[in-house]
């Protein structure tokens, strides 16, 4: 057991943890924040995406111990009180999910993606002629959705990113 201090959705937790525990299992089973999902536990689906210090990561691929002092945002932390994050609103409006299991990861991924746009970070497809939706598709391709809500996810993100840009 090692102790860490970690801030999740603005609340700081100090906990002793099994050094094998992933950040995902820490969030879900130690903190009981079950919004974040486990789809593969191997960094291959994106269901566990959370935002750590402003960057999106697959929380299943990261040991909780390595996050001492970090600030983590999960799907439960996207809204401000009762005020939904614009992406959450847009996901509902555009029907950007069906079963909803990939959705927390999609949302965290999309929220961090807006930050990448703001910072002008490039992706594998970036270029002067790359259509905006192509940028979104590429950047959201680490978040699998078996229900196939992809087009609506892109629409929702484009609507929000368009407003913001």
């Amino acid at each position: 057991m090692k102790a860490i201090k970690i801030t999740v959705n603005g609340r700081t937790h100090e906990a002793g943890i099994d050094s094998r525990r992933t950040l995902l299992d820490f969030i879900r089973d130690t903190l009981n924040l079950t919004g974040t999902k486990k789809g593969c536990d191997h960094g291959q689906c994106g269901a566990c995406t959370v935002i750590v210090n402003g960057r999106r990561i697959n929380s299943c691929l990261s040991l909780a111990l390595s996050h001492d002092g970090d600030e983590v945002t999960t799907v439960e932390g996207l809204a401000e009180g009762d005020e939904l994050h614009p992406l959450q609103r847009a996901f509902i409006d555009h029907d950007a999910f069906q079963c909803g299991f990939c959705t927390p990861g999609q949302l965290c991924s999309a929220a961090a993606l807006l930050g990448e746009f703001r910072e002008g970070l490039p992706s594998a497809v970036s270029g002067s002629h790359t259509p905006f939706v192509e940028e979104i598709r590429e950047r959201m391709s680490g978040n699998l959705c078996r229900c196939g809500a992809y087009n609506h996810i892109v629409d929702a993100i484009a609507a929000v990113a368009g407003e913001k840009r």
Partner: peptide, 10 residues
Amino acid sequence: RVDGLAKVTG
């Protein structure tokens, strides 16, 4: 979706 809110908030 009537369950939309539950699904986007985890």
